[in-house]
């Protein structure tokens, strides 16, 4: 049985192909202007990796901000449910109770009960505080490639305190810090801590219990993981490819719905 999940996020589009409930292919690309076109490109990358053709895929479920835009899928589901489904599968042995999923535009915290069923969730308001966008824009401001933010921040000895969580104000705050001549690593660590504070307050509203699963693209940032662990005082479990957890969940749902038919 072959199914696929496509996650059309605000910043990246991700696709995952499952064959007999094993991940055999995936693709990731930056969200362009034409979401439908990007989703098709990402899907064909995943097909190439899997050594399959489009006609082999029996069912596709889309998710994410642009889930209704893609013409590939006949069914769609909210990214919260898709993410939860992905973690139920990937984190089954861990016994996950809390998920922190940090996306480009939205950040979600999901609470599981003891059977790993979703019992509560929270999502950030419509501003960029506590999202990947916050990190991305400030990285650009600092002229540091996004991938280097994490390793660089870990060199920090005296992290600065970024007091605002509003991206617009944070940009001017960071600009002022650069003018002051503060070390890049200290500023970056401060940025990570600011995002972590925001995420932690959201998580506390939902209720944090171990084990905490941390996913979404920014979870690849080792400095972000460090900041989250410090702020919440708990260990974060980051999966191998944190950015495709939601797409994996959508592919699983596609497989289940195929079986149900």
């Amino acid at each position: 049985m072959i199914s696929a999940g496509i996650d059309l996020g605000s910043t990246y589009v991700k696709a995952v192909i499952l064959k007999d409930l094993k991940r055999v292919g995936y693709g990731v690309a930056q969200t362009g202007y034409d979401h439908d076109l990007t989703s098709k490109k990402v899907f064909s990358t995943a097909l190439l990796m899997a050594g399959l053709e489009e006609k082999d895929v029996e069912h596709i479920v889309s998710t994410g901000y642009g889930r209704r835009v893609t013409t590939l899928a006949r069914e769609n589901i909210s990214e919260i449910s898709a993410n939860a489904r992905g973690v139920q599968w990937l984190g089954a042995e861990l016994g996950v109770r809390t998920i922190i999923d940090i996306g480009g535009q939205d950040t979600k915290v999901i609470a599981f009960d003891d059977d790993m069923k979703m019992i509560n969730f929270a999502m950030n308001d419509k501003c960029a505080a506590g999202t990947g966008r916050f990190l991305e824009v400030l990285a650009r401001e600092l002229k540091v490639p996004l991938d280097e933010m994490g390793p660089l921040s870990l060199k920090s000895t005296d992290p600065v305190d970024i007091t605002t969580t509003c991206l617009v104000f944070a940009k001017s705050e960071v600009a002022a810090l650069i003018f002051k001549g503060l070390k890049k690593e200290d500023i970056i660590m401060g940025i990570h801590m600011a995002v972590a504070r925001r995420l932690a307050s959201m998580a506390k509203k939902v209720g944090v219990r171990d084990v905490v699963f941390f996913d979404g693209g920014p979870a690849r940032n080792i400095g972000m993981v460090y900041a989250m662990e410090k702020e919440l005082g708990r260990k974060m479990y980051v999966p191998e490819m944190p950015q495709i957890v939601t797409a994996t969940g959508a592919a699983l749902i596609a497989a289940e719905n195929l079986k149900g038919k």
Binding site: I80, M118, I119, M123, D125, K126
Partner: peptide, 29 residues
Amino acid sequence: ESEYDEGDVEQVRTRVEAFVEMLKARRKK
């Protein structure tokens, strides 16, 4: 949370859809 404009409709929709999906899943249990 919402304003008097259409700008937040899709964000609100995502939350509501997830909530409804969760409620339906709970009922199945």
